[in-house]
């Protein structure tokens, strides 16, 4: 394990600037999650670290060693791909053993067997070792793909949405397992995801990417509570943060220059307004089971908030909104201190 430094790295594909002046340091034993919408440059960033792409400029070092010019094989990283994870012509065992069989490593056969068995047991796929890689369920394939990385002890594990194709239940399970393994073994991981729950629950730190740039890095809590921009604020939170102009919530005391108020569920206190005096109207109630999404219509703007499932409100009811601790953003999208 080792510290990984990405220093002002850029990469363009033709006219598309996939990654722009990106700097990020992943400390030894840290679990850093890159979060961002599709096309933000997350995969490209991982590929740059792995050496599968050459940066146009910038420097990448692993454990203090400049690896910018080195081929992937000499960088000592492991990669879990977004797609195409397993070799279809090999068995599960052979897939797991493949990284250990590489000519640069020359691991003795009995040691390969021990490692593969240990990892397979840990990922609960030991009973599938003799199967063809193609004869597995999606979740099993994903475990094997993660296992292929875990059989090695590289400086850093690069994981590109390793859980994205799984159903919610399995994703939840593997999320816990992966985090447990990371903590137990103390490994360094740079992890890409769309999924904010993964980001919130697994990350030591989250990096939010937008159009090739890293716009903010911080602990999940910092990113959630202190987003630097409107864009970052929208990346975390379920339901998404409500963004409205100050005129919609005149009761809120806004700092000068405020163009947008960002109000999350916990910033909103909703009370039924008697006598038809409230500023908002309940437009829709979505029952999620244990909780509700409450859709409000406030001065022509649409707000969504989370409420208890037993809330005594009906569609058409008028409500009053109290706002506490909301976030304020200027016209350029930057945060303004309250």
């Amino acid at each position: 394990m080792a510290e990984v430094r990405i220093d002002l790295v850029s990469k363009a594909f033709g006219t598309i600037q996939a990654v722009e002046d990106l700097s990020l340091t992943v400390a030894d034993g840290e679990f850093v999650v890159l979060l961002g919408p599709t096309g933000a440059g997350k995969t490209t960033t991982l590929r740059l670290v792995a050496g599968l792409e050459k940066p146009d400029h910038g420097r990448i070092s692993i454990g203090g060693r400049d690896v910018t010019g080195l081929p992937p094989a000499e960088r000592d990283v492991a990669f879990v791909f977004q797609q195409y994870s397993l070799y279809p012509h090999l068995s599960v065992y052979e897939n797991l053993a493949f990284p250990l069989r590489s000519p640069t490593r020359r691991v003795p056969e009995d040691q390969i067997k021990a490692t593969v068995t240990r990892i397979a047991t840990m990922l609960r796929i030991a009973h599938k070792l003799e199967n063809r890689a193609t004869r597995l369920s999606g979740g099993e394939m994903q475990r094997v793909a993660i296992g292929r990385a875990l059989v090695r002890r590289p400086s850093i594990y690069l994981m590109d949405e390793p859980l994205s194709s799984l159903d919610a239940k399995l994703r939840g399970e593997l999320r816990l397992e992966l985090k447990r393994i990371q903590v137990e073994l103390g490994v360094t991981i740079l992890y890409v995801t769309h999924d904010q729950i993964e980001a919130m629950t697994m990350a030591s730190r989250v990096g939010v990417m937008e159009e090739g740039r890293l716009v903010q890095v911080g602990t999940p809590r910092e990113i959630y509570e202190n987003p630097a921009t409107v864009y970052v604020a929208t990346r975390l939170g379920q339901p998404a943060i409500n963004l409205v102009p100050p005129s919609v919530l005149p009761q809120v005391a806004t700092p000068p220059g405020t163009a947008t108020i960002g109000a999350r569920t916990e910033h909103l206190d909703i009370r039924r307004a008697d006598g038809g005096t409230g500023t908002g109207i309940v437009a829709r109630i979505e029952h999620l089971g244990d909780q509700n999404h409450l859709h409000l219509d406030v001065a022509g703007h649409h707000l969504v908030t989370l409420t208890e499932s037993d809330i005594a409100l009906d569609v058409g009811d008028r409500v009053n909104l109290d706002v506490r601790g909301a976030l304020f953003f200027g016209a350029d999208g930057r945060r303004i201190a309250a």
Binding site: A50, P71, P72, A73, F79, F81, Q83, R148, R152
Partner: peptide, 22 residues
């Protein structure tokens, strides 16, 4: 998919070895 060779190259194989094995 080229990811197959790329995976092999990250795992310590040269391009030629990845070509042969994968």
């Amino acid at each position: 998919p080229r990811e197959y060779e790329e995976a092999a190259m990250i795992d310590g194989y040269t391009r030629l070895q990845a070509f042969r094995k994968v």
